[in-house]
């Protein structure tokens, strides 16, 4: 099975070519070339873009923009993106991180998509030539999406408000049992004034733990006060079952790991 690769210098031209049947965008290729190697005949043609802006990282004040072709390795070593380094480093081994892109991670099905879990907790905005959509809307519609993602923007979190955890069995680089990212704002007395919690592997794509977010408001981060939030952490989840873990197991351990992350 052979693939035809078309290279374009602008996103506009590539977007046109992408409308043809059987055509997919080529990011780092860690999922799409793998699929072709495995005999996925639904992909007959790949399109890529060499526009340099796709590989740019811009941080000004807290406003951050990552081009869609930025790799996990580039994020992990960027001095201003230290808060995101744990999430970028959670993706695969060193060679995968040199190839895996931000754009590709937005499309990665569970058990993948660890970096996107972090982006969901930050309520990032996904950018295409047609405009900008909140990440949650993007994720809900991604299966039907035909437009090239050009980048993602978000407000860089202060290190103390953002936490990320990937739970894997094989250390240091296993596939996720689950991953969790939290963004918490707290008042001077330590009570939570706003909470966003994103979960990976708890559905076919990253999702928010809305019930737990609501239950955390007004709580201090003590075992007693977070207990009601942990009790509802599994609301709305429908985890995947794969060789790493069953759906039942993922639901059982989610409150345990969320609790550890909140109390860390």
């Amino acid at each position: 099975m052979t693939l035809a690769l078309q290279t374009f210098s602008t996103v506009k031209d590539a977007n046109m070519a992408l409308q043809a049947a059987g055509t997919r965008y080529l990011g780092g290729g860690t999922l799409v070339v793998r699929a072709a190697n495995e005999g996925d005949v639904s992909v007959s043609s790949l399109v890529r873009v060499t526009e340099p802006s796709l590989s740019a990282i811009a941080v000004s004040g807290g406003e951050t923009r990552l081009g869609a072709s930025v790799t996990m390795a580039a994020i992990a070593r960027h001095p201003e993106l230290a808060a995101l380094a744990p999430a970028a480093r959670a993706v695969g081994g060193p060679a995968i991180r040199n190839m895996a892109t931000v754009g590709g991670n937005l499309f990665a099905p569970a058990p993948y998509g660890d970096f996107t879990v972090a982006m969901l907790a930050l309520d990032a905005i996904v950018v295409t030539e047609d405009g900008q959509v909140p990440i949650q809307t993007f994720l809900a519609g991604r299966d039907a999406s035909r437009a090239i993602v050009t980048g993602i923007t978000f407000v860089l979190p202060r290190a103390e408000s953002f936490r990320f955890l990937k739970v894997a069995r094989v250390k240091p680089k296993g596939v996720s049992v689950l991953s969790i990212a939290t963004l918490l704002q707290r008042a001077a007395d330590g009570t939570v004034t706003s909470a966003r919690i994103a979960l990976g592997c708890m559905a076919d794509r990253p999702m928010r733990a809305r019930a737990a977010e609501r239950a955390l408001l007004g709580c201090r981060l003590t075992a007693e006060e977070i207990a009601p939030a942990l009790a509802v952490a599994g609301e709305g989840t429908s985890p995947i079952t794969d060789p790493i873990a069953s759906a039942w197991y993922r639901n059982e351990v989610l409150p345990v790991h969320l609790g550890r992350l909140l109390l860390a």
């Binding site: 080529l26 290729g29 860690t30 793998r34 190697n37 390795a73 081994g93 995968i96 190839m99």
Partner: peptide
């Protein structure tokens, strides 16, 4: 992309040649 046996160095970076066109 799982075993690493195909690893090569491209422009100074480790890459998997099985997933690189």
């Amino acid at each position: 992309g799982t075993c690493g046996a195909c690893s090569v160095i491209i422009d100074g970076e480790l890459r998997l040649s099985c997933l690189t066109l």
